[in-house]
Write a protein that binds this DNA or RNA. Structure first.
Lengths: 141, 141
DNA sequence: TTTACTGCAAAGCATTTGCAGGGCG
DNA sequence: CGCCCTGCAAATGCTTTGCAGTAAA
């Protein structure tokens, strides 16, 4: 199934184009299931399996990136965004972070490991303020 | 179910202690399913549901960290390790990286967001050398 | 015509949940 | 004695796969 990859990006299927267009217009990370629904809203209906297959191709092509959540759900977005996160282990809330100190490292790794790096993810885990307060007062979630 | 959290770490259940002991002795990241098998090998049998429930508690307590893979499987380890990864989008191979330039940022975020940060994950995605070669010669996987 | 893409439905898999029994304080 | 922990099995939810029809070159 990995026919479209970073070495064979001559053409994309119609489905891939639609999904890529959607991701670009949204400019945020979204799940495959939500992509399916969103396309339906835009009258660009597409089977769920096709959504997954297209995302896989775009991912391998290096234009789409993925962040997999703790519940097994994956969020897809275009790679141009450099958004990292601060995630609460208790309630799952996820705050975006603007800072990113790892670009230099990325370049070094590219050289050192001969890895063709498309993107990176950086995520911090802990307990958010409201969950801290909730627990301080004895309640939860 | 979140009774044991970072504010109520007075005691751990027997299951939690066993799992924590296992993780410490292994000193590497391992899946819940494999923890289940490994405990069985050590004649410390435990239901799979209990493995998950205990991991959840240890995670909330801040002594165990998680890294969720693209296939939805999660790898658990004790937090003392500062291991990050370089992962191939094609074959899934995951190389550990020693460098970590984000400790300063972690501390800043702790202050700025009043988040109680336990740990962070940093992962680079791309195509590994062998997959690059495989594709260059026209084959795959 | 030939090949690859697509949709649907079924299957796969890690994880979660319901519930009854058992252990510990 | 009571509450929490535990185990089993069923359920859940996201993702993948099989297969036949369809669109494109």
């Amino acid at each position: 199934m990995a026919r479209q990859n970073y070495l064979m990006k001559t053409q994309r299927t119609r489905s891939q184009e639609r999904i890529l267009g959607l991701l670009k217009s949204l400019n945020r990370a979204i799940s495959a299931q939500d992509i399916y629904i969103e396309l339906r809203n835009r009258s660009e209906n597409m089977g769920l399996a096709t959504v997954y297959r297209s995302l896989e191709a775009l991912k391998l092509e290096g234009v789409v990136q993925v962040r997999t959540l703790g519940n097994g759900e994956s969020l897809y977005s275009t790679v141009q965004q450099d958004r990292h996160h601060l995630t609460c282990l208790q309630c799952g809330a996820s705050l975006p972070i603007d800072q990113c100190p790892v670009h230099d490292l990325e370049h070094q790794l590219n050289q050192a490991y001969k890895f063709k790096i498309f993107y990176h993810t950086l995520e911090f885990f802990g307990i958010c303020t409201s969950c801290q307060l909730a627990h301080a007062s004895g309640t939860e979630g």
